[in-house]
Measured scan of single mutants.
Amino acid sequence: GLMCLEHEDEKVNMYCVTDDQLICALCKLVGRHRDHQVAALSE
């Protein structure tokens, strides 16, 4: 899978609806997407 741009060791596994961007779990937990609307990726 694709790796996160901000956290190079994390794979992107969710999608930020607010930013129209693929993000990883760390982005959602501690990153700038924590208050955004996110959706899980169905692979």
Rank of each mutant, 00 (worst) to 15 (best):
S42V: 06
V30R: 09
L29Q: 10
T18F: 01
R34T: 08
V38L: 09
C27T: 02
V17F: 06
G1R: 08
D9S: 10
L26W: 05
L41F: 07
S42C: 10
R34G: 11
R34Y: 02
V30C: 07
G31S: 04
L5S: 10
D35Q: 11
K28I: 12
D20C: 04
D9E: 03
H33E: 01
L26A: 12
L29A: 13
V17M: 10
E6I: 13
C24P: 00
C4E: 03
C27Q: 00
D9Y: 07
S42M: 04
Q37I: 02
V17P: 13
L2D: 15
R32I: 06
H36Q: 04
V38T: 05
D35L: 06
A39T: 14
E8L: 13
E6S: 11
C27A: 01
E43Q: 04
C24D: 00
A39C: 10
Q21G: 07
Q37F: 03
C24K: 00
V38N: 05
L2T: 15
V38S: 10
L22E: 15
H7C: 02
L26S: 14
H36T: 01
Y15N: 06
G1T: 05
D35V: 04
D9N: 15
D9F: 14
V30T: 14
Q21N: 13
A25M: 05
L41S: 13
V30M: 09
L29T: 14
L5E: 12
A25W: 06
I23N: 01
Y15I: 00
E8D: 06
D9A: 03
E10A: 07
R32M: 05
M3W: 04
L41D: 13
V12P: 02
D9Q: 13
C27H: 02
V17H: 15
A40S: 12
D35H: 06
L2G: 15
T18V: 08
M14S: 14
H33R: 01
H33V: 00
H33L: 00
K28H: 12
Y15K: 15
Q37E: 10
L41A: 12
D19E: 10
N13D: 08
H33S: 01
C24E: 00
M3E: 04
L22M: 10
H33D: 01
L29H: 14
V17L: 08
Q37P: 10
V12G: 11
M3R: 08
L29N: 12
K11Q: 13
K11A: 08
D35N: 07
H7T: 02
A39F: 02
A25K: 10
